[in-house]
Design a binder for these strands. Structure first.
Lengths: 183, 183
DNA sequence: TTCAAATAGTATCGAATCTAAACTTATTTG
DNA sequence: CAAATAAGTTTAGATTCGATACTATTTGAA
């Protein structure tokens, strides 16, 4: 009973709470836990450098032990598959099965935010302001990353891995992302 | 690996995840669970019709049994107090103790979103669009509620309870809130 | 080359939360 | 005034969470 309602933070809290309730409701209807849907959602938008237990753990802010368990559950139930990296055998790449994909499609349809796109630039600003203030890095799209190099028409190279990236690639989110100095 | 990144929903997810990580980090530093901080935050902005177990349960989307347990914990540790309603003895009103208030003050300072206010109207639009689509009601500020009546300078009356509301009152959030037809 | 340190991921244990259901107490309704 | 409803608590079982230890692999430095 200290404050009145009106700051950005409080409006955000309210939207977050409502959005999470929706997600939870959807998860329940699918017979899943909230965290499972969050994992599937992340896997549907991350790139091939960021589809690992460790990356999910960083993104969702939970320990990798906990994420590992949830992943085991998701794999058992046929929502994701795990493929060992050919170069670094410690690493396993995760991806959605057809089954997992269809959950995400149903979720998008269920949540269905069709509000105007004018909020997106505001969200980007907010995001990068939070990241700067708290020294977070990672989880942006290649397009705005300082490591991303445009080497000709629709051809890109990641400066970190020296690998070629397709037009599709550069619209996924990456755990190594660092914002270009001039936004 | 189905989608690329860019829709409103995906940007929201990203901001949500980051914000929740911040909240969790803060909660950990205070020796609290995330849900405890969320409850304290809610209690700091709700009005006197909405400071109950049931209302918190609706707001956070968790069962009242679960919330009841967390509230017991918070009361034991001196963050909140419980006062029985004089009229309806089933109801207990919850409020922050000095201790609880100071947690919320530290949280605001910690999160510290100083981005421009231009995002607030966008958030309001988003919120009301989600609420309409999913038939949710409740948890808005009296100021925009169809039950709220202005009866003279800075004097308001709630059409549901017929009680007087102060200028401070009408900026808190209420579980009975219904948007005025013309936004 | 060799061996210690670092990294990715899993397994395990105790604590805490979550849901669902039964339950208590109080209020409202017919 | 009995039955239905509502607010809140309690209980039990399942799940998650965090911490720690563990395996396997890679890196790096003497």
């Amino acid at each position: 009973m200290d404050d009145t309602f009106g700051t950005i933070s409080q409006w955000l809290e309210r939207v977050f709470a409502l959005h999470r309730n929706l997600m939870r409701q959807f998860a329940n209807e699918e017979g899943l836990q909230l965290v499972h849907v969050e994992i599937l959602q992340y896997l549907s938008v991350c790139n091939r450098y960021s589809d690992t237990t460790q990356a999910i753990s960083e993104y969702l802010g939970q320990t990798k032990g906990s994420i590992s368990q949830s992943l085991g559950n998701l794999e058992e139930n046929g929502f994701i598959r795990k493929i060992q990296d050919k170069v670094d055998k410690r690493v396993f790449h995760l991806s959605l099965t057809t089954n997992g994909s269809s959950v995400i499609k149903r979720m998008s349809k269920f949540i269905d935010l069709d509000s105007s796109d004018t909020i997106v630039p505001e969200l980007k600003l907010l995001l990068s302001s939070i990241q700067k203030k708290h020294g977070f890095r990672g989880f942006g799209i290649c397009k705005s990353c300082k490591f991303n190099q445009n080497v000709g028409q629709s051809n890109f190279v990641c400066g970190l891995t020296k690998e070629k990236l397709s037009l599709d690639d550069i619209h996924k989110i990456c755990k190594e992302h660092e914002e270009q100095s001039a936004i």
